Simulated assay, not measured.
Amino acid sequence: MVDRNWVWTGIFLLSFPVQFALVPTASAAPPPKPDARAAALFREGRVAMAREDYATACPRFEESARIEPAPGTLLNLGLCQEKVGQLAHALHSFTTAIDKLPPHDERILFARERVAAILPQVARLTVVLPRTAPPDVRVLRDGQEVPPEELGVEVPIDAGRHQIELELPGEPTLRRSILLAPGESRTVSLDEVEQKTQATVEVKPSSAWPSRATVGYVVGGVGAASLTTSLITGALVLGKKSIVDEECNESTCRSQKGIDAASAGSTLSTVSTVTFVAGLLGVGAGVYLVLTDEGSSSDGATSGAGASSATMFGPTFLPGGAALSVWRQF
């Protein structure tokens, strides 16, 4: 069975040269001579279309139609755009060709069939400007400026994800991403885009950095983990010490087991000491950061004009050693 679409395609591929080969009647004015550049581009597009090289054919037909929008060129362009999934563009090409064709041209039937097939597959979008938009505002859809005549009216658009941008003089670009389903109709009010973007901008500075209290909890947690490690290694040191006491005297060890225990005990003792000091510093620093967080003292600051507080952090020397202390004066 012959594919009807390709039969029609064969007719359209011949339509461009044929329409200029007609012999004028005595009562009709001679047809205008076709633009040489447009005709050459059409021929190149026809050759590429025949070998299904749509990436080459579509730009050729598009440029030819831009120079001279003949109905045959527009029909071929619509077919090419449909093949590559540019359905909204194909719809525009077919409807423009219908407007240019004579009322009884047999190609109108095919063009209307393609329009009927494409319509359920495209979405429809209406973009509404802000009420206070200045005259020089620019609206972009997927990086391309939307013509003023398309603002506030429903236009066909390919289904899928699209980005709408609003450019106001002296203001940052406002953006909104939308996802359209085939056959869906959507209205996008750029008033909502403006309000949502401003709200986002206002929130960003306050959430840029974590609070001192949050950092304090993290540092304190790390310090507590270090203290736990110190306690575990300290317990292991005691176990090694008991072996050394059994296998060694003050100067020598009687077995390899005693020698290994003495070596391991020395290493574990060093680890225990280091992690204990690191843990103590971490816990102290964490407590200091939590107590000096601005949010934790805001309530006290508003309780009275004369109220004041101070947090101090430093070493405390004891008879048997030293400790890290944090204290607060209210």
Rank of each mutant, 00 (worst) to 15 (best):
Q144T: 10
R186D: 08
P130L: 05
E171V: 08
P169M: 00
L238F: 10
D245S: 00
S242N: 15
A133S: 06
P210A: 08
L174C: 14
R175G: 08
P172I: 01
L179P: 06
L140S: 06
L151A: 04
H162I: 00
S251C: 01
S177V: 06
G223S: 14
G220T: 01
A224Y: 07
T200I: 01
E154W: 01
K240N: 10
R212Q: 08
L180M: 02
A199E: 10
C248W: 08
R186A: 13
V188F: 05
K196M: 05
P172L: 04
L238D: 08
L179W: 00
P130N: 08
G223L: 12
V222A: 12
R131Y: 09
A224W: 13
T228V: 08
L174D: 15
A235P: 00
I178D: 05
G216V: 01
S207P: 02
V193E: 12
H162T: 02
V244R: 15
K241P: 03
S211G: 14
E194T: 06
E247Y: 04
S207C: 09
A235H: 10
P182T: 05
P156H: 09
V201L: 12
K241F: 14
I232A: 10
V201S: 11
P156Y: 14
E250V: 09
L227N: 12
V137Y: 11
E250F: 04
V153C: 06
E247G: 00
S230F: 07
I232L: 14
T197Y: 12
A133F: 00
V203C: 09
T173P: 03
S226D: 15
V222Y: 11
E247P: 02
R175M: 01
G239S: 13
L168Q: 04
E171W: 03
L231P: 00
E247N: 03
S207G: 03
T132R: 14
S251F: 09
S242Q: 14
G239H: 13
S251E: 15
G160R: 11
L180V: 05
E150I: 02
D142A: 07
D191M: 00
